[in-house]
Simulated scan of single mutants.
Amino acid sequence: MTQTMAPPRLKIYKASPELYDAMMTLSTAAAKVVDPELGELIKIRASQLNRCAFCLDMHTRDARKLGVSEQKLDVLAAWDEAGDIFSARERAALALTEAVTVLGHGGVSDEIYRQAAAEFSDRELAQVVAMAVTINAWNRINAVAQSPLPRR
C-alpha cells in the first residue's frame, strides 16, 4: 500500500503579510468595547464549533489568564444547558456567536437577534458580531494552513 504525502500547506501570513495585519486590525477593532472575558468565551465557542484546535488552545489559555472560571470553560460547549453559570449577556452573545458561526438558510433568527439587542448597546452589539465574524475568519485561515499546536 502506497502512502501519498500531503502537499505542504501555504504559509499564508508569509505569503501575504498584509492579510495578517488586516486581520489583527479587525481583531483589535472588534474588541474595543467587548468585555475581555466575554470576548474569550465568544472566540472559544466559535472555535469549538469550527474545530480549530490552534484557536482553542490560544483562547482557553487567554481566558484562564483573565480569570474565566474552569467551570465555565468546562461546560461552554453546552452553555445553553448550564443554568445560571452564564449571565444573560453571555448567553445572548453565545447564541449570536453560534448563529453567526453556523449560518443556516434562515441566517440569524429574529429571536436570537432580539435577545442580543436587548443585552447590548448598538456599539457593543456591532462589536460582538464583528468578534464572532473575526474568530470565524481566523478559524478558517488556520484550517487551510493546518496551523500546528504549540508544544508546551
Rank of each mutant, 00 (worst) to 15 (best):
W138L: 02
L103G: 01
V33D: 08
I141H: 09
P7K: 14
R9S: 06
D110M: 07
A30L: 03
I42V: 14
A99D: 04
A116M: 01
A31R: 12
L73M: 08
T4I: 13
N136E: 03
I42K: 05
V144T: 10
A132P: 01
L56W: 06
I141Q: 10
G39K: 06
S109L: 04
N142F: 10
H59A: 04
L149M: 11
A143T: 06
D74I: 01
A145D: 09
R64P: 04
A130W: 04
R45G: 01
H59S: 03
A99F: 01
I42D: 06
D74P: 05
A30M: 02
I112F: 01
S121T: 15
R89V: 02
I141T: 13
H105W: 11
M5W: 11
I112S: 11
T25Q: 15
L96E: 05
L56D: 07
M24P: 05
K11T: 10
T134C: 09
A126G: 14
G67A: 03
A99L: 02
I112W: 05
R123K: 14
A116W: 05
T28E: 15
A30R: 04
Y113D: 00
L41I: 06
M1H: 12
V68A: 00
V33M: 05
P36A: 09
R89I: 01
I85S: 04
G107K: 06
A118C: 06
T97N: 09
D21H: 14
A78P: 00
H105Y: 10
P7T: 10
Y113R: 12
L94H: 03
P7A: 15
A15S: 11
F120W: 06
P8Q: 14
V133C: 14
R123P: 02
D62P: 00
A31E: 14
L76W: 11
W138I: 05
C52E: 03
A22V: 03
G67V: 05
D21N: 13
M23G: 04
W138R: 01
K43C: 13
Y13Q: 06
F120E: 03
R123S: 12
A126T: 12
A99P: 07
K14R: 15
Q127A: 02
K14I: 10
V133D: 04
I12V: 15
D80P: 00
A143P: 03
A145S: 13
L56C: 09
T28Y: 10
L26A: 12
E98S: 14
A145V: 07
E119Y: 08
K32R: 15
T134E: 09
H105E: 15
S27Y: 03
I42M: 09
A77F: 11
N136C: 06
E119T: 00
N136G: 12
M23Q: 12
A88I: 04
L56F: 08
P148K: 08
A145F: 07
A117D: 12
R152P: 05
R45Y: 15
E111C: 02
S87Q: 00
G67I: 01
Q146T: 08
M5L: 13
L19F: 13
V108L: 00
F86P: 02
R51N: 15
D57W: 07
K32I: 07
A82F: 07
Q127M: 09
L149H: 04
R9Q: 04
S27V: 00
K32T: 12
V75L: 15
R51Y: 11
R51H: 13
T28A: 13
T28P: 02
N139E: 05
